[in-house]
C-alpha cells in the first residue's frame, strides 16, 4: 500500500507509478506500430480506435448516466456527413470541420436527450431507435447528401500535412482517440461525471443534492453524441467514403454490445470492448480460412444452411462470445482486468 499525503493523489490521472508506466509503454507501442505494421493492420487499428471513441461516448450515456440509446448510428452518420459536407461543399479545413461535426452531433444529442426527461428504459430505447432510423432515411433520400450513393471523402489534412496513407490516417485517428479517452477519464471523475452517476443510481437523491436533472441528462446525451459524431467523421476518412446504408440499426446495437462486453461505466472497458468486437467481426469474415475449424464450418454451412451461409456462422460465433462474456463476467472485460489486477497485487503469495 502506498501512502497518500495529498488529496490530489486521490484524483490525479495516474494514481500510481505502475499505471503511469503502463500508459507510457502503451502509448509508445501505439507510436511505433505504423513503422512495422502493414496496411491492413493499420486499417484494423484505425477501425478499433474509431469504435473506441464511440464506445467511450456511449458508455458515458449508458454506463455512467444510466440512459439507453439505440440510435447512436444516427449520431455516427450525422458526424460523418457534417464533416465531409463542410469540407466538400463549404471548403472548411479538416481541423475546423472535425470539431464542428462533433458539435453538430452534440446539438442533435441534446434534442434527442429531451425525451429522456420523460421516458425511461424500454420507452427511451424505442424513441432513440426511431431517431437512428429517421436519420438514415433522411440522408439516403436527400440529393444534398448524395442519396444512396453517398459522397467521397477528401483526405484529412492538418495544415500542409495531408493524411493520404494508412500510416498518416493512423497518426491522426489515434492521436484524437487518445485525447478523447483522457478527456473522458477526467470528465467522469469530476463533478459532472459524479452527477451523471448520481442520476443513474438514484434520481430522487440526485435532485435532493441540487443536481439539475434536465440539464445533466441532456448534457450526457450531448457529450455522448459529440464523441460519436467525431468518430463518425473519422470513419468517413478511414473508408474514404460515406453512404447512408452503413449507419443501420445493427451498427447501433454493435456499439451497445461493445459497451456491455467491455464493461459498463469504464473508459478502459469501452476501449477493450471496441477492440474485441471490431477484431472479431473482421476475423470472422474470413472464418472459413481458419486452420482446422474453418473447412469444417464451411462444410456445416454448406450442408445445413444456404450456399451463402457463412455469414450465419459469423453471427452465431460472435453471439456466442457475447453471451459467454455477459454470463461469466457481468462486469465485462473491465471485470476481467480488475480480477487480474487483484491477483497480481499479492503475487507471488
Amino acid at each position: 500500500m502506498d501512502m497518500k499525503r495529498d488529496y490530489f493523489e486521490d484524483i490525479q490521472l495516474f494514481r500510481t507509478n505502475t499505471v503511469l508506466v503502463a500508459t507510457v509503454v502503451f502509448l509508445a507501442v501505439l507510436a511505433i506500430v505504423p513503422f512495422f505494421a502493414g496496411a491492413y493492420t493499420l486499417y484494423v487499428l484505425n477501425l478499433i480506435a474509431i469504435h473506441s471513441i464511440v464506445a467511450i461516448g456511449l458508455n458515458i450515456l449508458v454506463g455512467y448516466t444510466g440512459q439507453i440509446s439505440l440510435g447512436h448510428a444516427g449520431f455516427f452518420a450525422i458526424g460523418a456527413y457534417s464533416c465531409v459536407l463542410l469540407m466538400v461543399k463549404a471548403g472548411v479545413p479538416f481541423i475546423f470541420a472535425l470539431p464542428a461535426a462533433g458539435f453538430i452531433s452534440a446539438v442533435f444529442g441534446f434534442v434527442l436527450g429531451l425525451p429522456s426527461l420523460r421516458l425511461e428504459g424500454p420507452y427511451l430505447a424505442i424513441a432513440t431507435l426511431g431517431f437512428g432510423m429517421a436519420v438514415t432515411q433522411v440522408i439516403s433520400h436527400s440529393d444534398f447528401t448524395g442519396g444512396h450513393m453517398g459522397i467521397k471523402a477528401p483526405p484529412m489534412s492538418v495544415g500542409p500535412f495531408v493524411a493520404d496513407t494508412g500510416a498518416a490516417q493512423y497518426a491522426v485517428i489515434v492521436t484524437i482517440t487518445v485525447i478523447l479517452a483522457i478527456a473522458a477519464v477526467n470528465l467522469v471523475k469530476s463533478r459532472v461525471g459524479r452527477a451523471f452517476v448520481a442520476i443513474r443510481d438514484s434520481e430522487v437523491a440526485a435532485e435532493a443534492m441540487g443536481i439539475n436533472l434536465p440539464y445533466y441528462k441532456t448534457l450526457a446525451f450531448a457529450v455522448s453524441a459529440f464523441y460519436t459524431g467525431i468518430a463518425g467523421a473519422l470513419m468517413a476518412f478511414a473508408l474514404e467514403h460515406v453512404s447512408a446504408g452503413s449507419f443501420n440499426l445493427i451498427l447501433s446495437i454493435t456499439f451497445l454490445a461493445m459497451v456491455i462486453v467491455g464493461g459498463l461505466a469504464s473508459v478502459m472497458g469501452s476501449i477493450l470492448g471496441a477492440a474485441l468486437l471490431t477484431y472479431l467481426q473482421l476475423k470472422l469474415l474470413v472464418i472459413q480460412e481458419a486452420p482446422g475449424i474453418g473447412p469444417f464450418l464451411l462444410e456445416v454451412s454448406k450442408r445445413f444452411l444456404t450456399p451463402e451461409g457463412i455469414p450465419n456462422i459469423q453471427s452465431i460465433v460472435i453471439g456466442a462470445i457475447m453471451i459467454a462474456i455477459v454470463i461469466f463476467e457481468p462486469l465485462g472485460m473491465h471485470g476481467i482486468y480488475l480480477r487480474t489486477k487483484r491477483y497480481w497485487r499479492t503475487w507471488p503469495f
Partner: peptide, 19 residues
C-alpha cells in the same frame, strides 16, 4: 462529494481538462 455539488463550479470543459 455529491453533497458539495451545489457549491462546486466545474463544468464539462474544465472537468475534461482536469490534468
Amino acid at each position: 462529494l455529491l453533497g458539495r455539488h451545489i457549491h462546486m463550479k466545474t463544468n464539462v470543459f474544465t472537468g475534461a481538462t482536469f490534468l
